[in-house]
Design a binder for these strands. Structure first.
Lengths: 206, 206
DNA sequence: GTCTATAATTTGATAGAC
DNA sequence: GTCTATCAAATTATAGAC
């Protein structure tokens, strides 16, 4: 592994754990097993190092998300596929959501600068259109496509954000939380499809 | 307004915007319209000030959440009530979720120390039991109560966490995002109740 | 209680030898 | 490329006058 790779790996670890403000160059250097001066030799400043780290996954994630809506599948298979791939990705990167949300809300400008320069826009148009036509053909009940997509993503991501609170609230150990997350794929898919295929009016009050 | 109150207000603003690491004592002092030395006179250190700020809402929030499950209502009214009050609270405190999630994942120890010392545990037992009995009486389809509660909370909170990303992804202005959030109560309630009252088997694959 | 001035420490960044 | 030594700025915290 080259020095540059060692730095990027250590930097990602620090930024993910502590955020931009909390991460310290000295810690990154120690963790990479090299000297602090080397960080500046390779990346010039903390800010540029931060941008490089964010670039490294911005380029990977957005295209992955955009490719999730395979046009050959019907609406039900599309949703199941989306949830499955999304959750698989999250299980491999469980600390990504809280980093993403945290940095997006705190270091707004720096974060979106990298995103707009290095990644294609997330594109949900194909997904929304598939939802539209499924409604037209009465395969699912009428819903606002954007709200539905938001629902699906909420259900997938939120447990990873709330894991520490979930553990605190249920006063349980890691295994219990792990179990909840492991059952999440089935739960979410079932939850969504039950909702979409119920054409009845279910609002009990206004 | 006393000096102490002015400090707490300014501190909350800074911590909410920047997090513990990003917030600076000088900014807090400026924002409160007083001198930096006063912060230490009243709260001794940044860490203690941080704890006081967190205490001030930890004492308020958790009891509110615990009181949401009114025992007189049936399962459908309970859920609608829960979503309504929860969303009303979030609309009044739209920056609370990202602060909460960010600090919980970054300054884990400091954060939960305050929570355990100053707030009662969030208690979802009453809610879970109401879900159980609704299943027994076949008012709703069989679900895991914890998963359902997690679903409900996910749907309520996540849009507030993802608002900047939502704006970026849809390339829209504030009004559009505001509209989505405004329609959220109806959407979430409808989404959940449609799912729960659909007793059919809807899983299309395994 | 409130302020100015200053100490003490942390931290990002650079200079220069090897 | 890599290191040690050091600088300059930022930041938390305190001392002491009023």
């Amino acid at each position: 592994m080259t020095t540059e790779e060692k730095i990027l790996l250590a930097a990602k670890k620090s930024f993910f754990e502590k955020g931009y403000d909390g991460a310290k160059m000295q810690d990154i250097a120690n963790d990479a097993g090299i000297n602090k001066a080397m960080l500046h030799y390779y990346f010039r400043s903390k800010e540029l190092l931060y941008e490089k780290v964010n670039m490294s996954f911005a380029k990977v994630i957005i295209p992955q998300i955009n490719s999730l809506v395979d046009t050959e599948l019907n609406i039900f298979q599309t949703i199941e596929n989306f949830v499955e791939i999304y959750l698989e990705f999250l299980q491999k990167n469980p600390d990504l959501p809280s980093y993403f949300i945290g940095e997006m809300n705190r270091n707004h400008d720096m974060f979106f600068k990298v995103l707009s320069e290095n990644a294609t826009q997330p594109n949900f148009v194909a997904f929304a259109q598939k939802i539209y036509s499924a409604i037209e053909q009465k395969e699912i009940r009428p819903v606002n496509p954007i709200q539905l997509i938001l629902n699906i993503i909420s259900l997938c991501i939120f447990p990873y954000l709330a894991a520490p609170m979930l553990q605190y609230a249920t006063q349980s150990d890691d295994t219990f939380i792990g179990e909840i997350i492991a059952n999440r794929k089935k739960e979410i898919t079932s939850f969504i499809l039950h909702s979409l295929t119920n054409q009845n009016d279910v609002l009990y009050e206004n």
